[in-house]
Simulated scan of single mutants.
Amino acid sequence: MPNPSFAQLLDAARAGEPRCGRTRLILIDGQAGAGKSTLANRLAVALGGSASAGAGTYMPDAPLTSDAPVQIVHGDDLYEGWGGLATLDEVLLGQILEPLAAGGDGDFRMWDWLEDKRTYVIAVPQRPFLIIEGVGVAAPRARTLASLTVFVEAPWDARLARGVERDQHSYDDVINLWETFERDERARHQLTGARGAADFIIDGTAPIPDV
């Protein structure tokens, strides 16, 4: 089945009712290495915001301004390392989405994968749009607060190749780490039913046409 057009995704993001206070939440779940971050950046720019440099790149001396219309939160900044899917909801729901849904602001401490600990506090205030991308982010409770849910997938060999290219300089056993995370990922997605509940399913190896 062909991918939806980018115009369809953008229209759906804008048309959805805000369910996290004043914020329209866009969840981009899917498989590791499938292209979630790329899609998040494309949507953010189209919605009037800026692209993110990626997980782990938060600059405490230059945080996102309070009037920025779009914020991207990366799952890799939420997980506590390679085994972090087990405690994802404690941060995602407890520290970000539930406070927003109650009309307040959220925040969380970013996980530093190399230091193996939480470091900087990242504020997540009410904004017109919040995009959260990452494996496992579209849990059932999170979906009830979302204006749009997308699931991005790709064949394992393509995703592993992307992951090895990205992480090989940081981890000696990168293939084993990715294979272990893949097992946790499958279990998480089976538990949450994210793919079947998504508004759109995206093939991360195929283009998303403009129209």
Rank of each mutant, 00 (worst) to 15 (best):
P18I: 00
Q168N: 14
A68K: 03
W156F: 13
A53L: 12
A197E: 12
P2C: 09
V70P: 05
R109M: 03
M59E: 14
G103Q: 09
A197V: 04
G56W: 05
W156E: 14
A51V: 02
G104M: 06
E90V: 10
P4G: 05
E17S: 14
E182G: 10
D184Q: 15
T119M: 08
E153S: 08
L39M: 06
R159C: 15
A62L: 13
F181G: 11
E90W: 10
L10T: 10
T205S: 12
D77C: 04
E98Q: 14
P60A: 11
V45H: 02
A101C: 11
G83S: 15
A40T: 06
P128R: 02
G94P: 02
A7R: 14
R118Y: 10
G54V: 13
P140C: 01
G163K: 08
A187R: 10
F151G: 03
A139T: 15
A7H: 13
E115M: 13
L78H: 07
E185R: 05
L97D: 00
N3S: 07
E179N: 13
A198M: 06
A12H: 12
F200L: 05
V137T: 05
P18N: 02
G134W: 12
G49P: 04
P2Q: 15
E115A: 15
V45K: 09
R166A: 02
N3F: 07
I175C: 10
L177C: 04
L145Y: 09
I201S: 10
F6Q: 08
D173T: 11
D105C: 09
T23R: 00
R183A: 14
E80Y: 07
T149C: 13
I122S: 01
A12P: 00
P69M: 06
Q8C: 06
